[in-house]
């Protein structure tokens, strides 16, 4: 548990923790926009995706993306709530335990954002690979005609 990330969260100033929260929000917002782009891309290639041999694969991938989109909204809300409760660190009269709890939540949120981004990246890469293949196939069909 006492890894370097955990220690850094303990050592960081409230300002640093706050700017990290903003960074997460901006990162997640970007992912949200990117997911819209991926949705569009899937729509554009729907016919090819479902007529392909690996129909089940495509379906699984699209399902995965949908699940991740839902997860993103929840994660985003957690980040927002956490960002807004930073005052427990700034208020000198606040209970010390509250500050410690804030850092504890910060650490878990950090791990969750990181894990989410990593998982999402893998789904995205798989989708890119698939569509790349479809683009190649379409081109071949054009040439055969």
């Amino acid at each position: 548990m006492k890894n370097i990330t955990y220690k850094i969260v303990q050592w960081s100033t409230p300002e640093e923790l706050y700017s990290e929260c903003l960074e997460w929000a901006s990162q997640l917002k970007f992912i949200k926009d990117e997911q819209r782009f991926l949705d569009n891309l899937i729509k554009e290639y729907t016919v090819s995706l479902i007529s392909e041999d690996a129909y089940n694969d495509s379906l699984k991938l699209v399902g995965e993306l949908n699940t991740e989109e839902k997860e993103l909204s929840k994660l985003f809300k957690r980040v927002k709530d956490h960002t807004n409760s930073i005052e427990v660190l700034l208020d000198a009269t606040a209970d010390e335990r509250k500050g410690a709890a804030y850092r504890e939540i910060h650490y878990y949120l950090k791990v969750d954002v990181f894990t989410y981004a990593k998982k999402y990246r893998e789904t995205k890469t798989a989708l890119f690979k698939k569509i790349k293949k479809l683009m190649k196939n379409e081109k071949r069909c054009h040439l055969l005609k």
């Binding site: 970007f30 926009d33 990117e34 819209r36 782009f37 569009n40 891309l41 554009e44």
Partner: peptide, 19 residues
């Protein structure tokens, strides 16, 4: 890269709307 990606997202959304 993020900046460039954002422009691409918008452009593709536009193209797909038109098609």
């Amino acid at each position: 890269l993020k900046k460039t990606k954002r422009i691409i997202f918008e452009m593709m959304a536009d193209i797909m709307k038109k098609s």
